[in-house]
Structures are given as C-alpha cells and as structure tokens.
C-alpha cells in the first residue's frame, strides 16, 4: 500500500496562513471594539452571535450530508454507482445537474456527498455539475423558492440558470485530467483489487454494525468538512462585523453594479440555499429582478463557506475557477436579462 499521502490542508503553510488571517481578523474585531467601547466589546459579541448563527444553521445540513456520504460508502458499491453514469460526457454533466432531485442537499451537505462520489469513481464533470446545481435543483429549495416568489420568472429563471450554468461548467471540466483537478487524496484508486478488498470488508460488517460503521465514516467526513465550514463561518461573520452593509448596498444602482452587489452580498452572507429566497424577498423593492435572480443563482453555487469547503476536495487553482466561472456566467446572463427583458 502506498504511504498515506500528506493530507490536511491544515498542515500546509498556506493553511497556517489562512488560519492566522482569520485569527487576526477576529482579534481585530475584539481590539477595535475595546478601543472604542472599553468593555468586552459589543462588536466581539456581534461577531460571536453571527458566527454561531451561521454555524448552528448549517450544522444540521452538514451532518446530514456527511451521514449520506457514510451510507453511500457502506451500502452502495462502486459497481452499482457506475451503472448509472452516462457514457457521453455531456449527458453525464446534465445528469449531474439534475442529481440533486435524488440527493436533496444544500450547499453545506453537497460537498461531502460529492467528495464521496468522487472516491467511488464519479466522473469529474458529473460531480462538479452536481455540486453546483444540487443546492438549487432539489425538492426542498424548489418548495421554499415557490413559497417566497410563487410561480413566476424568479422561480423558473433560478432553476433554468442554475441547471445550465452548473452543467456547462461541469462539462468544461470533462476535458481536464482528474489528477489536475482533485486533491491527491481524493482520486479514486485505480487499483481495483484494493477497492474490491475494501468493499468486501464493508460487506463483512453485519446489520447494526454496518450502520454504526456508516455513521462513523460520516463522522470522519463531518470533521474533514466541518473545519472548512467553521473557518468559512468565521470569515463571513468577521466580514459582516467589519464591512458596513450600507457600503455594499450603496454600490447597487446601475444595471450591472446592482447585480454585482447582490452577488457579493450572497457571497458574504453565506446563507443556506434552503432559506435564501426568503432573504431575497427583503431586497425585492430596492433591486431589479435580475439582481434578485443573480443572488439566488450565484449564492447557492458559491459563497464564503462553500468555497472554503471546496478546498477539501479540489486543488487550490481549481477552487479559484469554481468561484470565477459561476461568477462570470451568472453576471453575464443576468446583466443581459436586465438590459433586454422586461419583467
């Protein structure tokens, strides 16, 4: 067996730097406040409240995603999975975009599931399309969007754009070598013998034991992904405590800047996709529909916490693409809509 690859973003120097930056930001919040107020810092208090609120809101979804991942590992063999993967790359990307209808997960839960599917040999294109689309293309989010906006251009615009952008980006990654995309520890082993051994081993565990096994594998995933979620929640809370929202909102007047502003807001707020449509309602009066749509399409694909979680699956350069490609695609399409479609 190959030696354990050096895992852990958290052992690399870059990780240390990211952590230091986050700690420095947190410290800054406290210090700034102590200078101003001279007490334990109402700003620090605000930071902690927002941080915990994002964490508490996200933790059930992350846990659910991790447990699904554990169940997949124990109960679904690689062979079973492989039978459902279309051979044609474009078809694979499209199916990936619709996979969320079977795995109803939001953007916190989707990353551990995608990660597990990659380990089981899912094509890169399908996984990326799934990861980007599932937070919108799933029954729960469709229902909450319907509840907030009813049947109209916002609802079907959200579904169509999310599906198209996600599948398109997924398809693009079909042309890349998996070794360039995934972190080394994420590559499905090509050593079939080894894999066979492993699943055989799972089959050995019986009944209740098998279930506990699935749960504990889910637990490992929870820890692997949880640190990114927590770092992301801290960053989002720090940005919310430090950057005045009026500053962001004041930018949003023009046909392109209003859209860009709403996208930045979605990125910074990092709200779960299952509820973001209710949040978007609050902006309906002050922003054009295309900007609301951009918020609802971009936010579930990419936000602070999910892009940090991407780091647990993909190489750093790829994470950058995974932020920029949805950003540019959403921006271009919604600006076009804003200029050419009357709502």
């Amino acid at each position: 067996m190959a030696p354990r690859p050096a895992i852990g973003f958290f052992r690399s120097k870059a990780a240390l730097r990211v952590l230091l930056v986050i700690l420095a930001l947190a410290a800054l919040v406290v210090i700034r406040d102590n200078e101003l107020a001279g007490s334990l810092g109402s700003r620090a208090q605000t930071f902690v409240t927002i941080f915990l609120s994002i964490f508490i809101e996200a933790v059930p979804f992350l846990l659910a995603g991790s447990i699904v991942s554990g169940l997949l590992e124990v109960y679904v063999s690689n062979h079973t999975l492989y039978r459902f993967v279309p051979r044609h790359p474009a078809a694979a990307a499209l199916v990936g975009g619709g996979l969320g209808l079977i795995f109803p997960v939001c953007e916190c839960g989707v990353v551990p599931v995608t990660r597990r599917l990659y380990l089981k040999g899912l094509p890169i294109s399908m996984g990326i399309a799934f990861m980007l689309a599932a937070p919108v293309i799933n029954p729960i989010v469709l229902a909450s969007t319907y509840a907030a906006f009813g049947w109209g251009p916002i609802l079907y615009g959200r579904v169509i754009l999310s599906f198209l952008i996600a599948s398109m980006i997924g398809f693009l990654f079909h042309f890349a070598d998996p070794a360039d995309i995934l972190r080394p520890d994420q590559l499905a082993s090509s050593d079939h013998h080894h894999h066979h051994d492993h699943s055989h081993d799972h089959a050995d565990a019986k009944g209740v034991n098998r279930f506990w096994k699935a749960l504990s594998i889910g637990g490992d995933d929870f820890f692997d992904m949880g640190r990114y979620l927590i770092a992301g929640s801290m960053l989002a809370a720090a940005m919310q405590t430090l950057i005045p929202q009026p500053f962001l909102l004041a930018l949003g007047a023009g046909s392109a800047t209003s859209i860009f502003t709403m996208m930045m807001l979605a990125f910074v707020l990092s709200v779960c996709s299952t509820v973001d449509s209710f949040l978007a309602l609050a902006f309906v009066n002050s922003f054009p529909p295309a900007a609301i749509l951009a918020f609802l399409v971009f936010g579930p694909m990419v936000d602070i916490k999910s892009s940090l979680m991407f780091l647990g699956v993909f190489k750093r350069r790829v994470v950058l693409y995974l932020i920029l490609l949805p950003l540019m695609a959403t921006l271009m399409i919604t600006v076009y809509l804003n200029l050419n479609v009357s709502w």
Binding site: F10, R11, R115, Q186, F223, R227
Partner: peptide
C-alpha cells in the same frame, strides 16, 4: 490502508478550529 482521504488525524489547529464554536 485506505487511500487516506478521511480518517485523517486531526492536527491541533484543526482540532481547535472544530472546537471553536463550543469554546466561543
């Protein structure tokens, strides 16, 4: 033996980070 994807040992920094919501 497994490809080393999960079951990763937690570094102290990772441990601290995961515990931070409880600590804070």
């Amino acid at each position: 033996d497994h490809a080393g994807y999960s079951h990763g040992r937690l570094s102290w920094a990772g441990l601290l980070l995961i515990a931070s919501p409880i600590v804070l």
